[in-house]
Computed example of a mutant assay.
Amino acid sequence: MKSTVRDVMTTDVAAVDQQVSFHAVAELLIEKGVSAVPVLDDDGHVVGVVSETDLLAKEEFKGCYYGDDYRPPLRSRIRHSAGSEGNRHRKSLGETAGELMTSPAHVTLPDASIVTAARHMDRQGVKRLPVVDANGRLIGIVSRHDLIKVFLRSDQHLLALVKEAVRADELGISVTVSGGAVTFRGAFPERSQPSMALHLAGSVDGVVSVRHCIP
């Protein structure tokens, strides 16, 4: 009943290989209207992700080091060559996707749950995840926008899913859904069934709330 990444991912993915130039990556991001693309090796494995942030690092450091003929002292250049600043400086010198990308890439599997993918994005501070098969090859991409689609299911669709999950017709219980809120009306045959029904209904992706009303 739980939706997986496979249910919402995009399979038509814009991706680049490691030899693609800086300008070609920038043009692809603009053309596709995306902020990042996976970088693949020759066998289709995801080896990194190159984003707008990676590209902007080049301009940022160019302005810092070379703008108005400014050249920082050697000590400053050495300091920037270490740690995260050093990584950004390295990217500022890059000319290809392989040199500009962030690696390793944060990825997910197609059978991962929506909740798992959302938590992974939040934990890593990313807006999308390449979806890979068991061998690490790219098969799709999932974004935050894709994940919230499960909460846009129609009430009619949710009603069918909930009734199937709790076997409402067999129990003789009335079920209604309004704005994603599920309401059970009537007495369940057994005392233990209401809590189980509420739990099952609440686990359906897209359900906002569940309640039981007894006439």
Rank of each mutant, 00 (worst) to 15 (best):
E95V: 11
V182N: 03
H145T: 15
H157Q: 15
A160E: 11
D12H: 09
R137H: 15
D17C: 02
V204H: 05
P189Y: 10
V5P: 06
G125N: 04
P73M: 01
A168F: 00
A181I: 10
G186W: 02
T176F: 04
Q193I: 13
H120F: 09
S195L: 10
L159K: 04
F184A: 10
K163L: 07
R88S: 11
D41E: 00
A118H: 08
R128H: 12
F188V: 07
E59Y: 09
L100I: 12
G94R: 03
L138H: 05
E52W: 09
D111V: 07
G63T: 03
I148Q: 14
S143Y: 05
P38M: 00
D169T: 12
S81M: 12
V208F: 14
S192E: 14
V25R: 00
K127C: 08
R123H: 12
R144W: 01
T116P: 01
C213W: 09
Y66R: 11
V175T: 05
E85W: 11
D205T: 01
L138M: 00
I30V: 12
G172P: 06
R77A: 13
V39D: 04
S203K: 12
V204G: 05
I78A: 01
I30C: 05
V207Q: 04
M121N: 05
S92L: 01
F151N: 14
K58Y: 00
A118S: 11
D155M: 04
L93R: 14
G136V: 04
S81P: 10
A82K: 15
K58G: 01
D17W: 09
S3N: 07
V20P: 07
E27T: 07
D68K: 13
Q156V: 15
A15V: 07
D205W: 02
M101R: 04
R144Y: 03
M121P: 02
K62G: 12
P194F: 08
D41N: 01
P73R: 06
T108G: 06
A117H: 05
G172K: 02
A165K: 12
G206V: 03
M196V: 15
T4R: 11
V182P: 09
T10Q: 10
V47P: 04
H145R: 14
V166I: 11
Y70A: 04
L93T: 13
A160K: 09
L93I: 07
T102V: 11
F188W: 03
R79E: 14
A112V: 08
P38R: 00
G67M: 08
A117M: 04
G179Q: 08
T102L: 09
E95L: 13
V175E: 06
L29S: 05
V25I: 02
L109A: 15
D69H: 05
I114M: 05
A118I: 07
V175R: 08
H120T: 14
G63R: 02
E27V: 09
T11Y: 02
S3H: 14
A14T: 03
Q124D: 07
E190K: 14
K2C: 00
R71L: 13
L200V: 07
